[in-house]
Amino acid sequence: MRAFILRRWWLIRNRLISTIAFALIIPSVLTLLTVLGIKNVIIRSINGQPYEMWVMPGLFMFMAAILIIPLIYRDFFDLRIHHKVLIPMVLSPVRKSNIVLNILFSSLLEVIFIIIIGLIIYSAIFPHSFNFSQGVLTIFYSILFAFLFGNIIILVSLLTERISFFIYIILIMLVIVMFGSGLFIEFDFYPVSMSNFLRYLPLSMVGIAGRTHLFQHTFDFFNTATPVIMSVLLILLNGFVLKRKMGQ
């Protein structure tokens, strides 16, 4: 674990200016271009909350998903395709599932750092939209979302060999995350049959659990535990696929 955290820190430090720039640009652009526009269309949620309050956890989950894609892409697609780094990693006495978990965990540290900056920016644009404990819970559920989403991206990165195919899948995934996971638009706005289906997507469950915890102060065990279990299973699957892909 220490090796992977050190590596992540070095990667951030070696491109510090661009990291800081992205840490400011991504949250600002996402907040301004999504929330400012949609809040004039969906003024209040179905429960009567102002849209900028309701959407906050969803926005940060989406931000976490956006932030983790390049980190995962680089380690599991780019470096694998170009026969870099992963070769010595898989030759080391570390289990493949541990390699997957450690890379994902160290990537999440970078995501947390940018999400904290994002929360500061968000509170500056929309004062009083969330309190401290809601901010902490938003970080927790965003990380849970990125943990599951990151595992899915790892699987895609390991299973695809062509960059064009990888990009198509990522774009489709982003559309599903943005419009089909209840992050920006409530499920009740969709037809009932579709809404019932979308609610049970593992990524949607994180959003539901997060909002239940933030706004109703109730821990939603089913919708929290299911994505966690899915993530653990995906780590084991990704470890197996990594092993196969590296000819081990």
Binding site: R7, N14, L79, K84, M89
Partner: peptide, 15 residues
């Protein structure tokens, strides 16, 4: 097979 975004020393220490 080094990571091009790390120094040689960082690559070696990580491994």
């Amino acid at each position: 097979d080094f990571d091009p975004w790390l120094t040689l020393e960082q690559n070696i220490i990580f491994d």
